[in-house]
Design a protein around this nucleic acid. Sequence first.
DNA 1: TGCGAAAATTGATTTGCGTCAAGGAAATCA
DNA 2: TGATTTCCTTGACGCAAATCAATTTTCGCA
Lengths: 245, 245
Amino acid sequence: MSVDSETTCNHKHQCHHCNSDGTCMDDESCISLVPIFNHLEPAQMDEIMSLIRSLKFKRGENLYSPGDPANTLYIVSEGKIKIYRLSESGKEQLIRFLRPGDFTGELALFSDTVHEAYAEAIEDTSVCTITRSEFNELLLKYPSISLKVLSEFSHRLEQSEKQTTRFATERVETRIALFLIECLDRDSKSQIVELPMSMRDLASYLGTTPESISRKLTEIEEVGLIEQISNKKIKILDLDGLLNV
Amino acid sequence: MSVDSETTCNHKHQCHHCNSDGTCMDDESCISLVPIFNHLEPAQMDEIMSLIRSLKFKRGENLYSPGDPANTLYIVSEGKIKIYRLSESGKEQLIRFLRPGDFTGELALFSDTVHEAYAEAIEDTSVCTITRSEFNELLLKYPSISLKVLSEFSHRLEQSEKQTTRFATERVETRIALFLIECLDRDSKSQIVELPMSMRDLASYLGTTPESISRKLTEIEEVGLIEQISNKKIKILDLDGLLNV
DNA sequence: TGCGAAAATTGATTTGCGTCAAGGAAATCA
DNA sequence: TGATTTCCTTGACGCAAATCAATTTTCGCA
């Protein structure tokens, strides 16, 4: 759901101050950026714009933490945000990263509860926010927004359930192999995967340790399925083989 | 989201042929049963009723399987349905059970994809179905339905992510303890938990084996945190202790 | 009520992987 | 650019939990 310079600012409406890298600096960009809003008419976007409030977070600051009341929708306009959870026993698990165009606020937006996860800005970040009550009114007024949000939620749910099943049933080696394959699907141009995060984060995301990731990658390399080109780059040599790890 | 005899058929609209156990046999019951619809006006429910088609599945039949196009919303009116997945390596993982009032159709309802899970009737079951296109029209016409579905989805997503984190970070013993506590929250009247499924299913749900469940329960009993009254009944003796397992 | 099948328990064994510890590579900052 | 910190890798070890196998218990059905 991230946005590149081709797809940014392509609606008829005015969109000032776009940067060369495709991100827009003004508040308005939040609306035109995100799939849940950018299908609307310019006039409707203007209306939504009047509701949003722009906030900035410095690297390291939390947008929300567990226990915080969840009454705000956050739309990322610049920067990078890490969503993670602490388990009952205190271990951290990475859920996802948010890039410009992504949103968070989660369930709590629709039921009156508190957050259970952390949202931490890992770069200096600016977000657009809408309160729950205003967002609910928007959903009632423009039902097509709901369909977009439902689509996004159902996709996340599918992903999450798939991840759950993998944790419940697959070995670490298999989880790593499947992750590589999914990275390849996204890039898909070459056979080379660029790992989108550090080993530490990847370990947290896959429910294992950096040590195990390192070891398993070496093992997979030794049987000829991949080649570790550099720290972050991995060449897939045998896709079918990987699928059967 | 299951429904008992107190809460069934309590709207002003007519609702014929209700059974003593609270389930209704006629098509209409599907609509009045489910939280996503039962807040509507009687006239609106009638309109929806005209769209639904009632289907019956015998015990063991699948409502859908992975690869099936997902273009139908299923609302359970009678019976019990098991949603489960097969991992890439072929192991089964239980996702959830559906009881009267619950619905499925998942993500696929909002993005044009195929199912990834199995939905199997484990009792003789009757469901009400609506096609995707008709359901989408309903959502656009009655935006309040979207809010209900969003609320349900976000709740499921929260649950799923919590489960993912547990699998990723907690030991089997802890997962079992947390499961018992959540069962207690639902019953909550006494300190006695009635396991809602077989050991086999529980193992599948918790990402472990029946052997491990059996062993761990015995261990937890030996340190005095619980008492195994019978096969399916467990008495919680020390809730705080369980939380720290 | 009793039989047979399925489910649950218990034991013995194996193994995957986390933990701890140390050395090397890479990134960050002045 | 060099120094310091953080990250990654490799090795040795221990443990949690899966697997395999054999009873025992429970439950569905005749």
